[in-house]
Design a protein around this nucleic acid. Sequence first.
DNA 1: TTGAAAGCGGTACCAA
DNA 2: TTGGTACCGCTTTCAA
Lengths: 336, 336
Amino acid sequence: MTTPRTPTILDVAREAGVSRQTVTRALNDMADIAPATRERVVAAAQLLGYRPNRAAQSLVKGSGTTIGLLVESLRNPYYAELASELSRAAAARGWGLILCDVGYGTDRDARLSPLLRRVDALVGCLPAGATADVGVPFVSVDNPDETVGDATVWIDHEAGVRAALAHLVATGRRSIAMIDSGPEPSTRCLAYRAFLTEAGLPWSEQSEVRVEESHDGGIAAAAELLDRGVPLDAVLAFNDVLAIGAMKEMAKAGRRVPQDVAVVGMDGLDVGGLVTPELTTAATDRGAIAAAALDLVADLLAGDRRRREVATGLGESLGTRPRRTVVPHLEVRASG
Amino acid sequence: MTTPRTPTILDVAREAGVSRQTVTRALNDMADIAPATRERVVAAAQLLGYRPNRAAQSLVKGSGTTIGLLVESLRNPYYAELASELSRAAAARGWGLILCDVGYGTDRDARLSPLLRRVDALVGCLPAGATADVGVPFVSVDNPDETVGDATVWIDHEAGVRAALAHLVATGRRSIAMIDSGPEPSTRCLAYRAFLTEAGLPWSEQSEVRVEESHDGGIAAAAELLDRGVPLDAVLAFNDVLAIGAMKEMAKAGRRVPQDVAVVGMDGLDVGGLVTPELTTAATDRGAIAAAALDLVADLLAGDRRRREVATGLGESLGTRPRRTVVPHLEVRASG
DNA sequence: TTGAAAGCGGTACCAA
DNA sequence: TTGGTACCGCTTTCAA
């Protein structure tokens, strides 16, 4: 038994006894077609299970922009909220957004390559130095390593850290530890040190813990801090996920939050509102981050065009478009 | 100044002084091309900012499957976790997954239509009777209304409810309320009633609250239950998000959870592990749900083919493939 | 109202 | 090692 290939517009035309243009007219609700003819065509298409070939359609109409979103895992609420914003921002521009949940650890590249042949550009939120040279424009979001990608959305975490610490100081805290993430002191951590110094607050190596960026990491960090037995009336965490883990461990160890020790996170995730007490956090505007990322993608896509104009002697000059957008922090959102 | 149109392979060929096939060879790392020629071509492509047209490429090579994922909002952790699984399952099949975060309320269709011209099928997780007749195969996930979509992933919530209630009863609870969602009693709610009856446990209309499916809904529901002043030593919630809201409100009202009142959710979301105490929940296997959904998509896509065979007299018979996959619940995950 | 022909931008096969 | 040519499936323009 021969498997018939998937039917094309020609098959429908043959079946309906008309030409292919007539099929197009019928199936696309165009004018100038006799109702009877249309019905016959529609019936034929239905019978054959015809569905227009998307690639052919795109080829002739222009394919529209599709971008890929790279995240470690959508189970991390930070990425989930960002993806939500990006999806809407993309939809607003009429762009498609292909999701690539690369997952922690392994075969990043394996998951990546099938994606690359489908997108015009990539927006990525990957911590490590992964994903260097893909073939398409690449906008990295909140990546401390600015050498990654063709453009960067940079979040002003220094301001966020200062706001968070100012809040703690204003509420009378003096022994403030920091839960940092990553092998090296982050920008946030450096800002933390600078603030403490300027404010004349105590700091020592014992004030900092460095853990993996996860809920469990937050738990481990809090346990470690308590273990050290140093004075501690507040903790600033690298982000909300860590902060929530820390809060949980503090409570488990019998410390009252925030009476005994205040915990402040960064990001302003929804989950911060689910826990008790609600998490105090230096929030970022993920809508703005998403918008900035898509603007950069648009710039990059347009930049190719501009570069071409110059190359062909038609353009004026390249014009130095910023390849780095700085997104500010919002106010500190204190818990009830 | 004329804006040059985006360069095609022909432009590169002209620039490099070769034929277009040679360009293809050079750019696709194919054999049988002189290194010098390749370099020249690559340079020309680089100069022109050439990038192959995806649509054209797809047209000639076969476009590969791309599916769309419809969710209310990725800010709802349930959808986020499901999207994560679906993304990976799709990647494993070499499929692309376009995300459509339709958002609550408004312009669903507006967000939907640009998506439809990009996908071969749709997987949707929409509660209301939205999105009836899209032009592509549609698999609805966990939708109580089975008339929606061409196939359904059905979750055996009845078993989940029974397991959850059995757990409560085993720990000595007798006055068990239910927080339900939606205007009508859900399947879960009916299962709840049946279980109570069979177990000889008390039930009255006062035992149920019906609220909007959100964290705030959970808060409101708990407040309402407490207001009623009926006996209450346990609450079963329609899902984890509601349960977490309820837990929070209970604690706020001075009820100890779980000593005074136990709260059980359904879903088994990660967030259940973030709150204190950790949420007890009747978990589902979202990996299985995702796999089932993609299997159904594959069936649907293949079904078109089969239908065609029959229509053209080549196929045997349609064969009644199930259009509804039932995914079981996992065990109840009790808190510490 | 319908049909014929010319592309859209690539890749593949065969001949040079 | 390279180029010529057909063709992928659809839409659009122009005639009939």
